[in-house]
Amino acid sequence: MPAPPVSNASPRVSPILEFHDVTVAYGRRPVLWNIDLAIDDACLFGIIGPNGAGKSTLLKAALGLVPLAGGSIRFFGQPFAEVRSQVGYVPQRETVDWDFPVSVSDVVLMGTYARLGWFRRPGPRERDLARESLKRVGLADVAGRQIGKLSGGQQQRVFLARALAQQADVYVLDEPMAGVDARSQELIFGVLSELRDAGRLVLVVHHDLRTAAQWFDRVALIDRRLVAAGPTATVLTSENLERTYVGRLDLLDELGRAVEERGRTS
């Protein structure tokens, strides 16, 4: 078991993760508008919304992978660049080429690279960590295999194991349950619950409403703006869901396109 998370300010006043008036644009076209969201405690937090709602974009903004058009995002009251090694990222499985010539344990070891820096090579400590992480996701026996030989669910678990090997305080997962078999889903959910119980914040982008209600402690409903956030039971009301999924704000899309066009002609 990893040690409990270190809080940076001794009486912690700042939330674990805070989005303050965040607007994100691709090129000049805004895709997320004025998100205000603070997560104070360790929990399993779901980010829920329809396709194209900007869920993944919100995660990428938090990780500094897409620039902010406005607002700020802080982990433990600090910008992401200061706390990088404390934030473990599990990208969508389809973002990488699974024919890439590395073994399962090679991929898991990548989770330790940020701490190792440029010049140190993974040593016995890192290898133990990788083995331990693979055991937790039930893949100890395929450590030496080429990653392309795994099933989709196993590949997703490899990604989770890589984040575990990082021993982070916050875990950020982008659709970890998409295209994953039932057994892997259960295993992944089990590991995420363990992390939450060990005092980590686990932030998950998720699209399936049915499972969202039973998995997450808290959720945020997002459709290019924040619709509602809070304890799962109070947020997933039929009224909120209707506002997220049915009353799509086409105006926001049109406005986004207009901003883009204006930018191009000026």
Binding site: L63, G64, Y89, P91, V96, F119
Partner: peptide, 22 residues
Amino acid sequence: IITWKMQVFTAFDAEAARAAGV
């Protein structure tokens, strides 16, 4: 040899590598 780790990480998963500070 010196940049091997970073080359492999970037080649395999550039997004995650960037998030990790590479």
